Simulated scan of single mutants.
Amino acid sequence: MTESSSTTVAAAAPPRARQLVSQLLQGDQPYMLYVAFVIMLVVFSAASPHFLSFDNFLNIGRQTALVSIMAVGMTFVIIARQIDLSVGSTLALSGMCAALAMAHVYDSWLVGAVAGIGTGALVGFINGVLTTRLAIPSFLVTLGTLSAARGLAMLITDTKPVIITSDPYIELFGETTFLGIPAPIAWTLLAIVIGILLLHFSIYGRQIYAAGGNPTAALYSGINTRRVTTLAFVFTGMLAGLAALVLSARSHAARPDVVQGIELDVIAAVILGGCSLFGGRGFILGTVLGSLIIGTLNNGLVLLGVSSSLQLVIKGAIIVAAVAFTKR
């Protein structure tokens, strides 16, 4: 290689690196997220001697795993100018189906995984079809499936929990470690990587930005906006199913009444991460950071002895503030 050609390659490398970073950090003001997160770490570290420890950070990672996994999918839905209020109920129903499949079909982690993720995908497909084909606002559709999925989860077992006896299932999704990383955090990282590849490095990602940013222009440019939106709901349902596997494995059982209200945390994480409720804008790493901010806030408030009711008030105020910031 000649000296001039090597100089050209060296000069081309930094722009490519900058392009990669810009694709991952597509928020208008991503640095505000990092500043807010650092300030929160400093405040809680000064207020509680137990906050700044490796074990506590692992606890935060475990505690935010469910929200982070589902928030990755919710990012796609909100970028498409929709919303999914049913993710918590989808998680509960998916967990019940996974446990029942292993109890009555075959006690295998693979059967449970297929049943759980498949149930989530089915609920997401129903949400997507009703929203796009019948032109019903996704808020109303998912409000209905929120109630229906939760009711079905209670109905199929008469509100009783289903014990999980598959040790490989419990180990794989709840208790083992991958290269020293606890299973819930490892599955969260996998969901994040898949979300980044789909949203920022695929044709589908460009289509969903177009469909959410300007649906009419996207339609006239040849994008099947119905299919793109439906797939966003399906992907969100699948990740809700994955979150159900993680939760049921950690609990050694599936319960129909779990994680009620978790959709509040999921939506808060996505909006805090820079995703616009009006569609067309958002990025995965921002969503993850938003989830970590919510998880760190919960963890810090618990260490400081703040009541659970006040925690709900604070999280609600954060959502309102984030939406107000988004409209500016």
Rank of each mutant, 00 (worst) to 15 (best):
A101T: 09
V105S: 12
V114K: 07
L122S: 02
D158L: 02
G286C: 11
N298C: 06
L66E: 11
T8S: 13
R250I: 10
F37M: 12
G61N: 03
I136C: 10
F125Y: 09
R227Q: 06
A99L: 08
A11T: 11
A47M: 10
S22H: 08
I181P: 14
L189Y: 04
S138R: 02
G112W: 05
W187M: 00
L110N: 09
V42L: 12
I196E: 09
S221R: 07
V259P: 02
S251Q: 15
I39Q: 14
C275Q: 05
P30S: 06
S6V: 11
A17M: 00
A113T: 15
V266K: 01
A65D: 13
L242Y: 04
S308P: 02
P161D: 14
L33D: 01
I271F: 10
V266H: 03
G95Q: 07
A321H: 07
E175A: 03
M238L: 08
L312I: 10
V306A: 14
I156R: 07
A101L: 09
A115W: 05
L289R: 04
L231K: 03
F37W: 15
E175D: 11
L303K: 14
L134S: 12
V9S: 11
T75F: 01
N214L: 03
A47C: 07
I185E: 05
V141A: 02
L155E: 13
G222S: 09
V9H: 14
T8H: 10
A268P: 00
Y106V: 04
D107H: 01
L219P: 01
L301G: 07
I126M: 10
Y209L: 13
G213V: 14
Y220V: 05
G261E: 01
R328N: 09
S251C: 06
S307Y: 04
A115L: 04
G222D: 10
R206T: 09
K327T: 14
Y209R: 11
L134I: 12
H252S: 09
I318N: 02
M96Y: 04
V306Q: 08
L245H: 01
H104K: 12
I318G: 01
A186D: 02
F76W: 10
L134D: 10
A47I: 08
L301D: 07
R81Y: 00
T287F: 06
T296S: 15
L199A: 06
L304M: 15
A46N: 02
P184E: 13
A46D: 06
S53R: 03
L219M: 14
V313C: 07
I319C: 11
V288M: 14
L20E: 03
L197G: 04
A249K: 07
A113Y: 15
G116S: 13
G241E: 05
K315G: 06
A17G: 05
Q63N: 14
G144V: 08
L247R: 13
S251K: 10
Q311M: 12
L264G: 00
V123A: 13
V129W: 14
S251Y: 03
F201M: 09
T216A: 14
P137H: 09
S53T: 06
G118F: 04
